[in-house]
Design a binder for these strands. Structure first.
Length: 474
RNA sequence: GCCCCCAUCGUCCAGCGGCCUAGGACGCCUCCCUUUCAAGGAGGUAACACGGGUUCGAAUCCCGUUGGGGGUGCCA
């Protein structure tokens, strides 16, 4: 009888800070990918033990962000705050077995005595017991623990180990009675039967403590694996900071990025598909078969907004027409002219819009001329095209437009022929017409825009441009 | 200071001892296409941090140097 492969369980354990950090989002994604690629289970644990930061609406932000990325989890999320009894019990066990002890804080003025430390290892043997201001610390003692170093084989970075002498007696229970991250983390991971701890490289240094604690608590460690992901850094090669970098995942949604593009790009930071095909229209389905946590790189990756934009543009272009309209809707609805927006008009230029934007947020600006009475005229553009023969050209154009068949191909042909007639080139003739109709000299293809705008409206706009010219001239 | 980690084009990813006169992608530049702008097509620019080993042979293995990052809390 062959053994069934043991179930692999990975978890994402964010603290509800009110926004999901880009780095956390990537950690969530890699955990999810690791789970989905191995038939594992993806779990969620909300680390909400910090009273101030456990407000329900802050937790919802985490769910909202994960849902935006399309990441789904397999079991009901665990609230760490609901497990405080278990955390306390673990500390009591350690206290009972002598691996933890009560410790008094050492005042700043008295630190020479302790080598600068905020605690005194002499407390280990004082059998202090509970008391005001007193914390419980773990006894990192080679003799008591029977080892002189702790190490593990990291799935991403290979063997890592720390000598016990470099690990301090860390706090398990604060003076206020609350448990620290170290205990909660270990106890809850064991409770959730987590087998794969996949997290950021900034947590490498707490892993020895994790391991020590886990063993001290008699919790199984044989099948435990760790993978520490390289950090995402900014162009200065520093860890992304809330202050100077755009780190909130959902802000990218609000700025017009597609969730799947974000997922696609994030997956490319520290990893790449073996076949080299970077753009994955449906990353959530395409990536799992290709992903292996051990293929993740070990050096930090710079977050490159330019490449993100490119990936987003590719995803936008891959959208079907109906999908595109659906995705765009929230952005046009936020425009000042939202009440005048009409699907039919938009549909007439949608394809042309789609290849010209990198984010959905750029759409309104491109189609505004269709939905406002009088598009604002860009002064520089107007100045650039309204001189010379432009006034007379526009007059002729206005005349001809009256009986041209109103289809883009005919408008194109008519304007081209007229350009020749006038002894100029189409590129020159279309420029003033474009500014007259849209207010700018760059924009969507002109004749397609005219068809959608309609003859009457085009004539009206050319007419007012002519009026403006007279005013300028007088 | 101490501990841990990292080191290929400006950036991301390939390369896991010979296939490398180092490949792909983003960016940038040039040209083509063209109703502006895009998109698309064709080119181009640009890297193995340095020094020692090991080996017939090193971007690939080892050591050191330098550089960078992370950590060093009764934060997580």
């Amino acid at each position: 009888m062959s053994e069934l492969p043991a179930e692999r369980r990975m978890r994402f354990a964010p603290a509800p800070t009110g926004y999901l950090h880009l780095g956390s989002a990537r950690t969530a994604l890699f955990n999810w990918l690791a789970a989905r690629s191995t038939g594992g289970t993806f779990l969620l644990r909300i680390e909400d033990t910090d009273l101030e930061r456990s407000r329900p609406e802050l937790v919802d932000v985490v769910f909202e962000a994960l849902e935006w990325m399309g990441l789904d989890w397999d079991e009901p999320p665990i609230r760490q705050s609901a497990r405080e009894d278990a955390h306390r019990a673990a500390i009591d066990d350690l206290l009972a077995s002598g691996l933890a002890y009560w410790s008094d804080p050492v005042p700043e003025s008295d630190r020479e005595r302790t080598g600068g430390r905020a605690h005194d290892v002499a407390d280990r043997d004082r059998n202090l017991g509970p008391g005001a201001g007193r914390a419980v610390r773990f006894r990192v003692d080679a003799e008591a623990l029977g080892v002189t170093s702790v190490g593990w084989h990291d799935e991403i970075r290979g063997d890592i180990s720390f000598d016990l002498e470099h690990i301090e007696d860390f706090v398990l229970r604060r003076a206020d009675g609350s448990s620290t991250f170290f205990v909660a983390n270990v106890v809850d991971d064991a409770h959730m039967r987590v087998t794969d701890v996949i997290r950021g490289e900034d947590l490498v240094n707490v892993t020895p403590k994790y391991l020590l604690l886990r063993r001290a608590l008699g919790l199984e460690v044989a099948d435990l694996r760790f993978a520490h992901l390289p950090l995402i850094v900014n162009e200065r090669r520093k860890k992304l900071s809330k202050r100077r970098d755009d780190v909130s995942l959902l802000d990218y949604r609000d700025r017009g990025y597609l969730g799947e593009a974000m997922v696609n790009y994030l997956a490319l930071l520290g990893w790449g598909p073996p076949d080299g095909q970077e753009i994955r229209v449906d990353p959530l389905h395409e990536l799992p078969p290709l992903f292996r946590i051990e293929d993740v790189g070990e050096s930090s990756a710079t977050f490159d907004p330019a490449k993100l934009r490119h990936v987003d543009a590719e995803h936008i272009r891959a959208l079907g027409s109906a999908q595109f309209l659906g995705r765009v809707r929230p952005f046009v609805e936020a425009a000042p002219w939202a009440d005048r927006f009409r699907d039919e008009l938009f549909a007439g230029v949608a394809d042309e819009v789609q290849v010209r934007v990198e984010t959905l947020a750029e759409v309104p600006d491109l189609v505004e001329f269709l939905f406002v009475e009088d598009p604002p005229v860009d002064d520089a553009d107007w100045a650039a095209v309204s001189g010379g023969d432009a006034p007379s050209w526009l007059r002729v154009l206005a005349d001809r437009m009256v009986d041209w068949p109103w289809r883009s191909a005919d408008l194109h042909a008519g304007t081209t022929a007229l350009a020749e007639e006038l002894g100029t080139r189409l590129r020159n003739l279309q420029a003033p017409l474009r500014v007259a109709l849209t207010g700018r000299r760059v924009g969507l293809p002109l004749f397609e825009s005219m068809e959608v705008l309609g003859r009457e409206e085009c004539l009206r706009r050319v007419g007012s441009a002519l009026g403006r010219l007279e005013a300028d001239g007088s």
